[in-house]
Amino acid sequence: MVTDKNPLLREGERLDILKRENIQIIQSPSVFSFSLDAVLLADFAELPRKRKATIVDFCSGNGAVAFLLTGKTENPIIGVEVQDRLVDMAKRTVQLNQIEEKVSFIHADINAITEHIKPDSVDIITCNPPYFKNLNDSTKNNLDAYTIARHEILLNLPQLMKKTSQLLKMNGKAYFVHRPDRFFEILDAMRANRLAPKKIRFIYPYEGKEANMILIEAIKDGKEEGLKILSPLFIHDDSRAYSEEVKAILFGE
Score class of each variant (00 low, 15 high):
Lys5Phe: 02
Leu8Met: 00
Leu9Gln: 00
Leu9Ile: 06
Arg10Ile: 04
Gly12Val: 04
Asp16His: 08
Lys19Cys: 01
Glu21His: 13
Asn22Arg: 14
Asn22Pro: 13
Gln24Val: 12
Gln24Phe: 05
Ile25Arg: 04
Ile26Phe: 07
Ser35Glu: 12
Asp37Asn: 05
Ala38Ile: 15
Val39Ile: 09
Val39Ala: 15
Leu40Val: 10
Ala42Cys: 08
Lys50Tyr: 06
Lys52Gln: 14
Lys52Gly: 12
Asp57Ile: 00
Cys59Arg: 05
Gly61Tyr: 02
Gly61Val: 02
Ala66Arg: 00
Ala66Cys: 07
Leu69Gly: 02
Gly71Asn: 07
Glu74Val: 00
Glu74His: 08
Ile78Arg: 00
Ile78Ala: 00
Val80Leu: 09
Met89Leu: 03
Val94Thr: 04
Gln98Leu: 07
Val103Asp: 01
Val103Lys: 00
Ser104Asp: 06
Ser104Gln: 03
Asp109His: 01
Ala112Asp: 11
Ile113His: 03
His116Glu: 15
Asn128Gln: 01
Pro130Asp: 14
Ser138Glu: 07
Leu143Asn: 04
Asp144Phe: 04
Ala149Ser: 08
Arg150Thr: 09
Leu154Val: 13
Leu155Lys: 10
Gln159Met: 08
Lys162Met: 03
Ser165Cys: 08
Gln166Cys: 01
Gln166Phe: 01
Leu167Tyr: 08
Lys169Cys: 14
Phe176Val: 08
Phe176Asn: 06
Pro180Val: 14
Pro180Phe: 14
Asp181Cys: 03
Arg182Lys: 09
Met190Phe: 10
Asn193Glu: 15
Leu195Gly: 03
Ala196Val: 10
Pro197Ile: 07
Lys198Asp: 02
Lys199Asp: 03
Ile200Arg: 01
Phe202Lys: 08
Ile203Ser: 05
Ile203Thr: 09
Pro205Arg: 03
Glu207Arg: 09
Gly208Gln: 11
Glu210Thr: 06
Asn212Ile: 12
Leu215Arg: 10
Gly226Trp: 11
Ala241Ile: 06
Tyr242Ala: 14
Lys247Leu: 15
Lys247Trp: 12
Ile249Met: 10
Gly252Lys: 05
